[in-house]
Design a protein around this nucleic acid. Sequence first.
DNA 1: TATTGTTATACTCTATAACTATA
DNA 2: TATAGTTATAGAGTATAACAATA
Lengths: 160, 160
Amino acid sequence: MKPARARKPAPEPREIDDAALREFAGYNMKRAYLTLHADLLAVLDAFGLRVTTYSALLLIAGNAGLTQSQLAQALNIERSGVVLIVDDLESRELITRDRVPGDRRSYALRATLAGRRLRDKAVAQVRAHEARLLAGMTRDERAELIRLLGMVERGAAEGS
Amino acid sequence: MKPARARKPAPEPREIDDAALREFAGYNMKRAYLTLHADLLAVLDAFGLRVTTYSALLLIAGNAGLTQSQLAQALNIERSGVVLIVDDLESRELITRDRVPGDRRSYALRATLAGRRLRDKAVAQVRAHEARLLAGMTRDERAELIRLLGMVERGAAEGS
DNA sequence: TATTGTTATACTCTATAACTATA
DNA sequence: TATAGTTATAGAGTATAACAATA
């Protein structure tokens, strides 16, 4: 009945147990985020967009005339970072940078027709990407996920 | 009844509308992840740990004898990145790198007593950090969040 | 030949700080 | 003085590729 004793200390390809980490929302969040982000990156690459550039394009298209500072605040990044993103979008003629009559320090950002068209195509692909990714979830589960993520975001803002 | 016409084009501090982005799990995930990660970073900084180093310490403590390659796989990073993390933990005598009898190419990683003690303190603080952050959630909501994040992680793995 | 750990290198993303032109 | 945008620089964090030792 006794099984044969293994001869070598055997570098058995053991399963690593991460149960101690799975208790934490942070660990699960990081893993989910990194996989989702990598997948999304691949989708947007076909349009020459990175994730933040995509977000910027949607924000500009949906808020015609916003300034770079407003965009920085909405994206939660510094103004200096927005410059590169806006440079990129403008050089590809997806947005325009117009002077604001009342304040010559700031620019009014607007999506061009080409920009809105690219946005439409990208949005369709991102929707498809999420449908694929979240195929195992019901509509309610997906809504619940988004709701709970919003709570985390706001909780972190308050908790600091 | 007609309100007085504003005289200047007014650079009104408008609210930027991100509704077009809020439909996406990816956008909500990124924002939640970034805020949570920044908050967690501040907590772990008191222990001289970064998030991945913390994860590595817990994995090593919970899987005595695992190799660097196994750790790399568990952390979803390259072996070259593990070297830096292991160097850091070993130089602080939180883990040991022992030769494996059967295979002289690899090392067996083990947490020292000091490593396990630091882990215990850090885990307690991270638990407190998450309790603070997720204070608005019920126990069920928190469990549901973790479950749904796991689905995203696995969905992305399959979808590729 | 393949694998483990290592090193050197490069790239992405973002922040900080100093600058300019306006206000 | 303060603000919008810009520039230069630096720092995380990670990947890639080549290598030595060992299997």
